[in-house]
């Protein structure tokens, strides 16, 4: 990995074109760090002028807001907006659909107006513009399905960009039984991830994992750190007893980065 610009180390005239907002999962989850590194590889491969906030990044407030703590949300949001303004940030790319949604749809209410793009849209754009050429031989004929994250799909209508990115890989793409606007949630949103389980007949991520098995895919592609955690758990639970785990999950960025 080439060196990465951190805003705090840069002088005023060096501020890059894009802020890459890493998100908390990229800091805490070892599995998800691979996704972050993969996406950075794509950015660097395409010579995108970007920087990260590093230690100055802080939760944008989404889980607090959805769990009812508007006070905490606004405190976090105002601090993040202050950081953005200090570095004159105008364009933001993020891998996290929850952060994406908050920046794009909710920060304007607090005076934070930015051009926000999700990593899957950005990848699809790079492919469209011919800046990103994907090697179609790496995953050739692999059967891949895509799990629509709620905050990209239903929330913001982003259904085609991730599919376009996957199709660039030359894979055989299959749909899950419930896809696009009918996609079944992974079970983690709305701060559920942090909450202890209440009794139910099964868990949401297990139900979704069954749909992945039904699709016949060997890889389920995701585009959200929460979905990644939940599907990883679902796949591990469901495949715990089988000798070999046959279905794996990858973020779209990981698949693309592996085929550069």
């Amino acid at each position: 990995m080439q060196p990465i610009s951190i805003y705090a180390d840069l002088s005023h005239d060096q501020y890059p074109e894009y802020l890459f907002w890493v998100g908390c999962a990229g800091a805490v989850d070892l599995r998800y760090q691979k996704v972050i590194r993969a996406f950075v590889k794509i950015l660097q491969h395409c010579s995108i002028d970007f920087g990260v906030l590093g230690e100055e990044e802080s939760c944008n407030g989404d889980p607090a807001r959805r769990a009812g703590n508007e006070m905490l949300f606004q405190m976090q949001a105002l601090q993040v907006i202050e950081t953005f303004n200090r570095y004159n940030i105008k364009q933001i790319i993020t891998c996290c659909p929850h952060c994406f949604n908050t920046f794009k749809n909710e920060y304007p209410d607090l005076g934070g107006n930015y051009e926000v793009v999700s990593h899957v849209e950005f990848i699809a754009q790079l492919i469209d513009q011919g800046k990103l050429i994907v090697d179609q031989s790496v995953f050739k004929d692999k059967v891949v399905t895509y799990h629509d994250p709620c905050y990209l799909g239903r929330g913001n209508g982003i259904y085609d960009a991730p599919r376009k990115a996957l199709d660039a890989l030359g894979i055989k793409r299959v749909e899950l039984k419930e896809n696009r606007s009918k996609s079944l949630c992974c079970g983690a949103g709305g701060a559920q991830l942090f909450k202890e389980n209440d009794p139910g007949t099964t868990e949401i991520n297990l139900q979704r994992t069954e749909q992945v098995f039904e699709s016949g895919a060997s890889i389920v592609a995701t585009a959200c750190p929460f979905c990644m955690l939940m599907l990883t758990d679902g796949l591990q639970t469901k495949q715990a007893n089988s000798e070999t785990a046959t279905v794996g999950n990858k973020d779209i960025a990981e698949l693309i980065a592996a085929a550069l």
Binding site: M1, I4, I6, V22, C24, G26, A27, V28, Q33, I36, R37, V52, L53, G54, E55, E56, E57, S58, C59, G61, P63, A64, L72, Q76, A191, L193, F194
Partner: peptide
Amino acid sequence: IENNGSPWQISSDQRTSWI
């Protein structure tokens, strides 16, 4: 979130550990 700026219990220097 209040203390560490993340819903998980992490310190801010972990934010660059992926680098």
